[in-house]
């Protein structure tokens, strides 16, 4: 009976779809947190497969920092149309205007941390009781211990010491009023798995991920795209480089890598040969050894 086994990618796919279906079965108002990045794109396509021929039975939620790459926004609108899914947008600019969040100042200012406020407000306003995200355990140390079903208290906080044990494939989504869950169906995927899956399934991704010419500056070893949101120091001169992005965050904090990879095959080769983690290009993770853990506790993605 040796033909009765799955490849690792098919097994991961099957696991993720199982979890997405559990979310829809166990919660009343689920949503998918969509960043425009490759991980949440995979999640959106897995959701489509999970319920086909029915439509995806939950909305995509985009927390718009106002500092997104234009390519991300263009892709988002295309995808929403392609999948026939509802889009809910939470605006960080609105949170700032309402005084719910305070803009950072200084040369390395970013709206990354402000997203937490907008995200929690959006969850509360829409009464979402489960928010699925594309986080993976291989991304960062604090995420290695995250559960598939991650319980959040009524303040949206994560308590690493008080997580529910997860056994076999039985997921416990019971909760009290006002609490919600974050669910991570592709927890067990690595960056390579995501790329291989995008390739195998022939899924389109934002142009940012492919090699292109761009006006950039190099700050403390990080290649940053010029944009209206990036304040330049007096000695910083924009130059043109051939780059691509490995993650898809806010323009002022997402670093590019020099690359000629202009097809998915070339990207996969590049990822396989890479000796640096993808988050190594993220300025937000470099704010201290436990930066991610601290942000997660307060309700970050």
């Amino acid at each position: 009976m040796s033909q009765y086994y799955l490849s690792h990618l098919r097994e991961l796919e099957s696991e993720a779809i199982y979890i997405i279906r559990e979310v829809v079965a166990q919660f009343e108002r689920p949503a998918l947190l969509f960043s425009g990045g490759k991980d949440s794109i995979v999640l959106a396509y897995l959701s489509r497969k999970a319920f086909y021929p029915a439509r995806i039975p939950f909305p995509l939620v985009h927390i718009d920092t106002g500092h997104n790459f234009p390519e991300t926004m263009e892709y988002r609108d295309w995808l929403v149309n392609e999948l026939g899914v509802r889009l809910v947008v939470g605006s960080v600019q609105e949170s700032i205007d309402k005084g719910r969040a305070k803009e950072e100042t200084g040369i390395n200012a970013s709206r990354n941390a402000l997203q937490t406020v907008t995200l929690l407000d959006t969850i509360e306003q829409n009464k979402f009781d489960a928010a699925m995200g594309g986080a993976r355990r291989d991304e960062e140390k604090a995420r290695a211990k995250e559960r598939f079903f991650s319980h959040r208290d009524e303040f949206g906080q994560w308590d690493p010491k008080n997580q529910r044990p997860e056994l076999w494939n039985i997921f416990n989504g019971r909760k009290h009023l006002g609490e919600h869950f974050r669910v991570f169906p592709i927890s067990n995927w690595t960056e390579m798995d995501v790329w291989q899956y995008l390739f195998a399934e022939n899924i389109s991704i934002p142009k940012l991920y492919y090699s292109h010419k761009r006006e950039v500056i190099v700050r403390d070893g990080t290649i940053l795209s010029t944009s209206p949101y990036l304040k330049l120091k007096s000695d910083e001169k924009p130059i043109e480089m051939t780059v691509r992005f490995r993650t898809c965050g806010d323009m002022p904090i997402t670093g590019a890598v020099e690359s000629d990879a202009d097809t998915m095959e070339k990207i996969i080769d590049e990822v396989a040969a890479s000796r640096k983690t993808e988050r190594g290009t993220r300025a937000d993770d470099k704010r201290g050894e436990t930066a991610m853990e601290d942000r997660k506790k307060s309700g970050y993605f």
Binding site: H8, D138, K141, A144, K145, Q163, S187, N188, T190, M192
Partner: peptide, 30 residues
Amino acid sequence: LTDGLRSEREQGITIDVAYRYFATPKRKFI
């Protein structure tokens, strides 16, 4: 490399289940 959360690093012990990933040309491991 594998001691993740702050409380653990302070105590110098692992306190929970942590998942790690690696792959060889033959298999992927969790």
